[in-house]
Amino acid sequence: MAHGFLGYRSTFMLDFVVSALILIVPLLLFSLFTVKIKRNFSLHKKLQILLGAVLLVAVTAFEIDVQLMHGGWQNIVDQRETPLTPEQFQYVRNVLYVHLVFAVSTPLLWATTLFLALKRIPDPPKPCAHSGLHKKLGWISTIDITLTSVTGLYWYYVALVVSS
């Protein structure tokens, strides 16, 4: 297996998603800044739709790459220069399970938040009756994507970086 562009025995798409996980939280914070501080509802809407679409495409391409092209994450981890012990492998698997809780809930929350916003918030966007629920869903989604990022980065670290 070729090295990913981050320098580990990974895949291009795995390294791409890891890079996206590093960038998504600051971009999301910028989007929140545009709406909370600048009160630029239109830019916030555009950024959220763009971030959602980019993440959907990236995660779909990632899953195709990992599952179909490489036969699953275990095959990628097995290409490490230093093989994992059974205990390390179990730990990596457990970290992945925790990550998947957030990785699965994030697109569901984000899609719900976007769908309801597009349906209930006027165009051009401005505060309305849906704003209270939208704020709650938005903050839950923000926390969820942040936890997705943190756990995903940690999984990459323990699965591919430590003692490679």
Rank of each mutant, 00 (worst) to 15 (best):
P125E: 03
Q88I: 04
T113N: 13
I140H: 09
K46D: 13
P124T: 00
I37L: 14
H99D: 01
P107S: 10
P86L: 06
G7R: 00
L114S: 11
F89E: 00
S149K: 02
F16C: 03
K46L: 10
S105V: 15
L29R: 09
D123K: 15
L29Y: 08
L47S: 03
H3A: 02
P124F: 02
L153K: 05
T34Y: 09
A58G: 06
F30H: 09
P83M: 07
L32A: 03
E63C: 15
V104S: 13
P107M: 13
R120S: 03
V162R: 07
T146V: 05
L109K: 06
G152V: 02
Y97R: 08
A117E: 07
V92N: 01
R39F: 09
P26W: 11
G7N: 04
G52A: 08
G52D: 08
E63G: 13
L28F: 03
L108D: 11
T60S: 15
S19R: 00
V17M: 05
L43C: 02
H134D: 03
V35I: 12
A117M: 04
L147W: 03
Q48C: 14
I49Q: 11
L114K: 11
F30D: 08
L28E: 03
R93F: 09
I76T: 02
P122Q: 03
F89T: 02
T11C: 00
V104F: 15
W110Q: 05
F102K: 14
F41N: 09
P83W: 14
L68D: 14
S149E: 06
T148V: 12
K126F: 01
I24H: 08
H3K: 01
Y154Q: 04
A159Q: 01
F102Q: 08
L116A: 06
M13R: 15
T82P: 05
P107Y: 07
H134C: 07
L114G: 13
A53C: 07
V57C: 00
G7T: 02
F30W: 13
I64W: 12
E81W: 08
D15I: 00
